[in-house]
Amino acid sequence: MTPELALAARAGLPDPLRVLIKEFPRDAWQDHPQYSQLIAFWLDRHLMFRRLLTHLNDDLEAILDARSDTDTYKRGLARYGGMLINQLHGHHQIEDTQYFPVMAQLDTPVARGFDLLDSDHHAMDGLLAGLTDAANGVLKADAAGLRDALGGLHGVLDGFGTMLNRHLVDEEELVVPVLLKYAPAQFR
């Protein structure tokens, strides 16, 4: 993976990997005859990740602004943070072992895009570990150390959110057009 294609460095998919998104623009996906339950489910999973991240950020803002109590905040952080982390790990594992290998064979010109997405998943593993550590720091913090732990989590969530969104957008713009174009039987 070249440095400019790393998740933290890129602003989107490189032009050679955007061929299918030009053929199948996002605003026409749901009206396409090959739009399937799998595509809808997969996009819903991405929406769930975005909503969980928004929930974590909103809860963090509420505790920082003293609009929430510590016990309630910590319970929500454990629940929703754990859900985001665990669900992302499982989602990435299924994509890397089941979906991406098949999709890469369907369209050779964009096959390297699936290597890029797999590389993103490895980068996300480190980001998820950092999020876990920051969240655990908050959960273990006593009253004296809570504010610092919350500040650390705030910074981690900001960076994590940026990388997660970049990855989800790029993944959607590669995967959905491949599924619309080829409609493989095993993915219907």
Rank of each mutant, 00 (worst) to 15 (best):
R50L: 03
N57M: 11
A149L: 08
A149D: 04
L17D: 11
M48A: 06
K22R: 13
H89M: 12
H92Y: 14
G81W: 04
L56A: 05
R10G: 01
T70N: 06
N165P: 00
A129S: 08
W29E: 14
E4N: 11
G130T: 01
L174Y: 09
P109S: 05
F41R: 14
T108L: 02
G137S: 00
V156R: 14
R112C: 03
R166E: 09
A11Y: 03
H46A: 03
R67E: 09
A129I: 03
A78S: 13
G152F: 01
L77C: 13
Y80Q: 04
L88R: 12
A9W: 01
Q98P: 01
L20C: 08
L56E: 09
F187L: 14
G137C: 00
A141N: 07
D170K: 05
L43R: 03
A129Y: 00
G161D: 02
L53T: 09
L84P: 02
R45Y: 04
R50M: 05
D15Y: 05
I39H: 06
A123I: 03
P101H: 10
Y99T: 12
F187E: 01
L84E: 04
A62I: 02
L117P: 06
L17E: 13
H154Q: 12
G155P: 07
Y99F: 12
H55P: 00
R26P: 00
L13P: 03
N136Y: 02
L157V: 13
L116R: 14
S36V: 07
L53C: 04
D44F: 02
T72S: 15
T97F: 03
T72Y: 02
P16A: 05
L150C: 15
P25R: 14
L180I: 04
M1I: 08
V19N: 15
M103E: 07
F114S: 10
L64Q: 14
F114D: 06
T54V: 09
A8N: 12
L116F: 02
K22N: 14
H154F: 03
R147W: 00
I39M: 09
Y73L: 06
R75E: 15
Y73H: 13
L128E: 13
L53Q: 11
R112F: 08
H122R: 15
R50T: 05
I63F: 14
A104W: 02
F100Q: 12
L43G: 01
L52V: 00
A78M: 09
D170M: 04
D115L: 09
D44N: 10
